[in-house]
Design a protein around this nucleic acid. Structure first.
Lengths: 106, 106
DNA sequence: TTGACATGAAACCAAATGGTTTTATATACT
DNA sequence: AGTATATAAAACCATTTGGTTTCATGTCAA
């Protein structure tokens, strides 16, 4: 019975370069769809779809303001990205260690 | 003229849950395809395809050893994940702060 | 050398992805 | 009231994705 709360997860959401760019944009400032679209070589409709996917992953939310819909970044789910990353690189020391160990094999 | 050196990048590579699991497996131990396959409810061919994608992203490499092909993890490209992550969460303090603030909601 | 095992490669398929165009609806402006 | 603006929603489409099955090739072992 467990509901499929989110169709898209964070990993899928950031798989697309356009969506990563959108997140970057929104990290500076809340923006309406049309403004976001102006930064990309594609239709507003395409951007709206990307925003929906980001929204399903709870990385952004949109609030209607007059006739505009203002989107805002919510970076919290990206923490899952960090948890994943740290399965492999738990700290900077381990990275250094790895690099040293493999120095000669190159 | 710039060649598309890699068909798949890290972000695409880790978008699939099976591939993330494969990376996790390989983080413990180098493994041949058949052994990897035994951990998943799908065919060896399917796993081989996932390995190719991971390989294109340079997250794994495979070396023939007798009739087996042993795969090994190369976590280096995951550093890009970290760079992306830190665009939004620049330091551990902000993460800690967030986690503490949301402790009770679990 | 024959058979079992491990992988590779190709053809095929349904569903998802990432885009388009068209049409509709709600809001703001004059 | 009528027009322009901002978004939404739907139909459509080509390509990619994630799987399958089938067949071929190389290697080990008896």
């Amino acid at each position: 019975m467990s509901q499929p709360v989110h169709k898209h997860d964070v990993f899928q959401a950031i798989a697309d370069p356009t969506r990563r760019e959108v997140l970057k944009l929104l990290s500076e400032k809340d923006l309406p769809i049309s403004e976001i679209t102006s930064h990309f070589p594609m239709s507003r409709t395409a951007i709206a779809k990307h925003l929906r996917i980001l929204s399903e992953a709870e990385l952004v939310s949109g609030q209607k303001k007059g006739r505009e819909k203002i989107y805002r970044l919510h970076p919290e789910p990206l923490i899952e990205l960090r948890r994943f990353y740290e399965q492999f690189w738990s700290n900077k020391l381990s990275i250094l260690k790895y690099m040293v160990e493999n120095e000669e094999e190159k």
